[in-house]
Write a protein that binds this DNA or RNA. Structure first.
Lengths: 107, 107
DNA sequence: TTACTTTATCGTAATATTGCAATATAAAAT
DNA sequence: ATTTTATATTGCAATATTACGATAAAGTAA
């Protein structure tokens, strides 16, 4: 088949998986780290920093944008965007909650 | 191309991506949640709980095993395994560290 | 032994992801 | 108006993932 059977899983499980999928590529991890550590927004040097072709970076940025991790203006030549901190913290909390729920009585 | 250019990224970025990849499927999120909430080990009802075919579950379990999230004995008919808590906490910490590193001065 | 139960592996089809060249778009600079 | 600069989109090839039927393997029960 090849396509995930998303319909048989709960919204919570699907959402966490979707978020994880965005982080499931080293380029996107690197991009996220880079942007999150910038002092200002405007980051038009990603292609040099990451080392992938410009269309590829553009695609990765789009995946990141899709889950709401970027905010700013996306118009014209010089974009101006940065990490959406509210969303960032939501994701942190989502992972943290998931990993906090564990029983201790095991082999 | 289709294959990720892992060699151009740092070990840290690749590792986090690899971990995220395991969580990037709702079935694996559901499996992890189920196992982590069991009182004992032996979980031979995953196929019914998750709702995917037995070979598919087996494959997903293998992905989870690969990043060291399961411990126990994997021999014969009745497996006996559960979450490797040390590793579990390592992953929690890895995500937490990643999300904690963010600058605040932005648009 | 034979049948049963449970998990693993193989083979294969369907779909998704990754990456880039070519090209388009859109604003700024000259 | 033309060139330059920066990002987006399209199209396509290579690879990876997802899923399952068929079958194997390996222990348990009769």
């Amino acid at each position: 088949m090849g396509a995930s059977k998303t319909h048989i899983f709960s919204p919570t499980h699907n959402e966490l998986a979707q978020i994880a999928k965005v982080m499931a590529h080293p380029a996107r991890v690197a991009i996220l780290e880079y942007i999150s550590k910038q002092d200002a927004c405007i980051c038009n040097d990603l292609v040099d920093v990451i080392g992938l072709a410009q269309p590829t970076i553009s695609q990765h940025l789009n995946e990141i944008k899709k889950i709401g991790l970027l905010k700013g203006t996306f118009e014209g030549k010089n974009l101006c965007y940065c990490i959406n901190q509210e969303r960032w913290e939501e994701l942190q909390e989502a992972f943290n909650t998931f990993f906090s729920n564990i029983n201790r009585n095991c082999c």
